[in-house]
Write a protein that binds this DNA or RNA. Structure first.
Lengths: 247, 247
DNA sequence: CAAGCGGGTTGACGTGGATCAAACGCCCCA
DNA sequence: TGGGGCGTTTGATCCACGTCAACCCGCTTG
């Protein structure tokens, strides 16, 4: 995935134009014509900064906007009464947050910044209005929602049918692909979440995650130093998924 | 590998009008005005019968329509290369199938009838066109997609953070609520899926599902006779979920 | 500089659910 | 009417992952 011509980021302009944004290929405007994207510019309102560990929204908050991650990253989670946490996803730049709120006009999960981050606010009423006029926007938005559903099915597969090492391998491969799409190294990256958060996402305890990392390292698949991951044998990781037990 | 059984669209001409359908409250038209629903009538094309164990669509099939279940019920599943199956959902009358296909213009899961069933075919291109004109339809459709996302998060919670009996209790409560919404008894119903399918959905083996049923019966929470379930103590089931260990 | 702390690793041990195995009951069909 | 097969139940055993606990490391703070 090649980056578009580098465009100087608008200097602290409160509104960031989609038409000038280098995340176009990853975000809502993907596949839209330049003309259509210009119309999006009018819609995407202010940006909002969210500091590490702060909530972008919480369960029960009134739903008004969806958000596109510009910089940084987030996790979304759901809490059970007794305190158990289920992380439902990690979101990186260009990805859309808040779709859960549409169904009941209130958010049904929490969105928390994993690092100092920055989102574009997309007022949902305006998005619906504009997407009645701009067919490509309408279609693209539907694709974004559908992609979220497909992603969730993948996670269900992972949680319901895979063993610990398969889950972690799938997670690492997924992270690698998403970093690659953003122009970062496919083989070397920095995880923003803790072992506990990874574990919650994968339906495992943090000790199990840690042990699986260690085992991967022993087997020469990766190198781990705290949150810094280097993938040494991506095919080996992928083989774990095919359940050809480490041919 | 069996050849695609190209089910001839049962002409049956009788295209059912949403405006005349008693599933309105559960289906896409929910919340729309009578006038707006009349417009939907033009859109919902033929119906299609699907016999028990037949596919409504398969992974890889071109995406053209979404479907509303009229009678009967379905499961959706995803398969891993080595044959492991993950059931991603069960769909009852009024519920929408096929949203997974929007993202890539091809279906990403299989939809299989659990009994002889009957769906309304909603050509997606037409739906997008009409929902550019009918605001209430647009909004309702977005809610349907969002509800699916929220539902998936619930399943992730279940798979990632709950123990076997909690999962089954959640499943039974959910089924009971959905039967109730359709005018059936909340306390007594007939499951259309096997123990294995329930297990796949809940991330458990069929033996574990069976044992949990038996344990619930011993504790006076339910009565089980094969697929026939009678709930005797709904509060007891709900208590299992709050993880107040059977006070 | 020490003390405290959050995150991570590692070991010893326990257990919930998987696996293996046998038998049963319902239903379809010859 | 009897047989065969699928779905289900139940018991015995196993093991992957959870739990508990000790310790390490890098940061922060007084």
């Amino acid at each position: 995935m090649q980056q578009r011509a580098v465009v100087p980021i608008t200097v602290e302009g409160l509104k960031t134009a989609c038409s000038q944004c280098n995340l176009q290929e990853l975000c809502l405007p993907f596949g839209m014509s330049d003309g259509d994207i210009d119309q999006l510019d009018a819609l995407v309102g202010a940006r909002r900064k969210v500091k590490r560990h702060q909530h972008l929204y919480r369960v029960g908050d009134a739903f008004e906007s969806i958000y596109a991650v510009r910089t940084g990253s987030f996790k979304t989670d759901v809490l059970l009464e007794d305190g158990r946490e289920q992380v439902t996803g990690f979101q990186m730049s260009g990805e859309i947050l808040g779709l859960d709120g549409i169904s009941t006009d209130a958010h049904t999960c929490n969105a928390i910044a994993l690092e100092d981050s920055d989102v574009c606010i997309i007022p949902f009423a305006n998005l619906e209005t504009l997407s009645r006029e701009v067919e490509s926007l309408q279609h693209q938005f539907h694709k974004v929602m559908s992609r979220e559903i497909v992603r969730d099915h993948g996670v269900m597969m992972l949680l319901g049918s895979m063993r610990a090492e398969e889950r972690l391998a799938a997670f690492l491969i997924n992270m690698s692909q998403r970093f690659t799409a953003r122009g970062f190294s496919a083989a070397e990256f920095h995880l923003r979440m803790t072992r506990e958060e990874i574990g919650s996402y994968l339906g495992l305890k943090l000790e199990t995650v840690s042990r699986a990392f260690s085992r991967f390292q022993e087997n020469g698949l990766i190198t781990v130093q705290q949150k810094h991951i280097r993938i040494r044998d991506i095919d080996g990781l992928k083989a774990l998924l095919s359940h050809l037990p480490c041919v």
